[in-house]
Design a protein around this nucleic acid. Structure first.
Lengths: 359, 359
DNA sequence: ATGAAAGCGCTAACAA
DNA sequence: TTGTTAGCGCTTTCAT
């Protein structure tokens, strides 16, 4: 290495010198934090322009100890739901002149721990935690360092941590109502990863919704998936091999897409022989064939609620976090239809219902 | 606001004090930047543990002027290709103890300008620029501030900026070869957004590939899309309404998915009546029905090349950037098959049979 | 092997 | 209205 002098850096002081004022004045011009004679301000602005000066928030961050950055920890960016949410969160953040620090865990605990550490290191002033499942000890450091947290679908708040919970039951109820209307009685469910708490929530919500609507819950029609295409495919294959419902509701759209793939593979046509309902309403669900009937979750609203919960926590670090609920709405497309007429039985199916698809 | 004293901050100095050493020693223990008596080191480590101290790279960033952060500017996170690429880039970056700063432009110039500004502001030490199209003036500030740049598919390098270019022509040639082998002669193309340079590249690559394989290029079989589902759908509808090829190659998978949707809508079955080939090989292309034959692009390799080009530029700021090419490979799935036998069809099919859509 | 101290760029007291 | 200055947390000479 040639021991050259470090390159001249462009700072407020250089601007100040050039403009014949003090750096404080430059700062005031830039931030409007105190009155400056318009003439001087003009001049300073011209110099800034001329020099292409861009102030560094890093020094400010150092001064104030927090970074105007919000962390987001997601399990899996390959599920379009997360990018779609990320877009919205980023939009809101950038609007507010803050940044997003993204970390992906691939649902692995060591990755989560590492992600948390990155958040600490970068001094984020809040973390949105979507890692589906984790040992509470993993996020302990966040509490220790008093970083506001908002989890998603943990359904549990504490001091320093809020939660944003999607209304699964409401969503599933709408779906079930829709299916019942179409004539379905045997409604199956393909859930998330077995063993995950969040999968339990969804399954339980499904069960409650079923009961609420007056249908019976039959565990034979239930399978676990993995929130991805493969899991939906496998689960549906398993379902086809044994007890066959006439409609299946899934834990998310990817699962539904996988289920539909399995149906295609097995020559079962959708929706005429089997109806499928997704969850999330990712953009692609309108692009595939048949277009997916699914339960819509507003990513924008979620992002908004996350930020709200975070702000609340920041302002009330010693109070319980906010528990916010996100509503859902059923989007009826082409993957649901009346069940195949039980020709051999006392069929309840009505031929009229093709048209009833519209909201 | 109660005018309380700012909360005590946990710094190297606090650790040092607690350990009865100087902050320099703590720094040396943490970074191994200079020898420290093992005994002292042990002790300091214990204190760090005890206090849950996490060093702040912010101060270091301030000291050295660069942030160990790499910017990524993408046009549209809703296209799964970008998240899939992002995952890989982030992986590589984090491995190297660097961070990713993400910005989305939604293909709008003002957003690009703002994104660039964010990059400057955050003192990133490199930018991966995937914004499909832009006025060169928009990225001028990056050059002024000597930030290494790597563009994707700009096919142009300069001092301070490398480029990573996907081998469209190679990819299209493989696809065309495959289709020709199946018996196709009339091969259409649905490109990107009209007017974009990158769309021109793709179209030209397609034309060259066609010629190289000995087929004739017929502009009647060519349409523009928008790199999204909607554009593919519209373009295919337009194609169906006029001159109909027996196979269509697209600018990306989303376009292909849209095209297939249009085919479904119009009762043209895929692949028996029309073959469709995508580009990118996003994960979902294997999940839809029919599974998409597509041209695979390795996102990992792209990410790798981007970082390589960036490093090269950083080390040779006054030389021309690297121009790296990314290979492609054809993934044959179920959306391509021999063309319908010419005997019965000398022109267009009848858009009657609604039922023919299913498997 | 260790400590003292300067300085990275910025902002907010405080002084003038 | 403007300037001076201290200090945010860290690393790195330079002393010791």
């Amino acid at each position: 290495m040639t021991p050259r002098k470090a390159p001249e850096r462009l700072t407020m002081r250089s601007v100040a010198k050039r403009a014949g004022v003090s750096s404080a004045t430059v700062s005031r011009v830039i931030n409007g934090s105190a009155p400056v004679t318009e003439e001087v301000a003009q001049h300073v602005r011209r110099i800034i322009e001329e020099l292409n000066f861009v102030p560094s928030p890093i020094a400010t961050t150092l001064k104030y100890g927090r970074s105007k950055t919000c962390g987001l920890i997601v399990p899996d960016l390959a599920n379009p739901f997360f990018p779609e949410f990320l877009i919205k969160l980023e939009e809101l953040l950038v609007e507010d002149d803050r940044e997003l620090l993204l970390a992906t865990t691939q649902s692995s605990e060591p990755n989560l721990i590492h992600s948390i550490h990155r958040m600490l290191t970068r001094r984020v002033d809040g973390v949105v935690l979507m890692a589906s499942e984790f040992d509470t000890r993993a996020i302990e450091p966040l509490f220790l360092h008093k970083i506001p947290i908002v989890t998603v679908d943990r359904r549990h708040v504490e001091k320093g941590a809020g939660d944003v919970a999607i209304d699964f039951e409401g969503g599933y109820r709408q779906a079930i109502l829709h299916l019942r209307e179409l004539g379905h009685r045997r409604i199956g469910f393909i859930g998330g990863m077995e063993g995950l708490l969040t999968s339990q929530f969804r399954l339980e919500a499904f069960r409650q919704a079923l009961l609420a609507v007056g249908l019976t819950y039959n565990p034979k029609f239930v399978r676990y998936g993995d929130y991805r295409v493969g899991g939906g495919d496998a689960a549906m294959s398993s379902l086809l091999a044994t007890s066959r419902p006439t409609a299946v509701i899934t834990a998310n759209d990817l699962t539904a897409i996988g289920a539909i793939r399995a149906l295609h593979t097995n020559g079962v046509s959708v929706p005429s022989q089997m109806s499928v309902v997704g969850f999330d309403d990712i953009m692609l669900s309108d692009a595939i064939h048949p277009a997916l009937t699914t339960i819509h979750v507003s990513k924008r609203e979620m992002a908004h609620s996350c930020i709200r919960a975070l702000n609340h926590t920041k302002a009330n670090l010693n109070k319980l976090g906010l528990l916010l609920s996100i509503g859902t709405s059923l989007i009826i497309r082409d993957s649901t239809a009346p069940p195949p007429s039980e020709s051999s039985a006392n069929g309840r199916a009505r031929p009229d219902s093709r048209a009833s698809v519209t909201v």
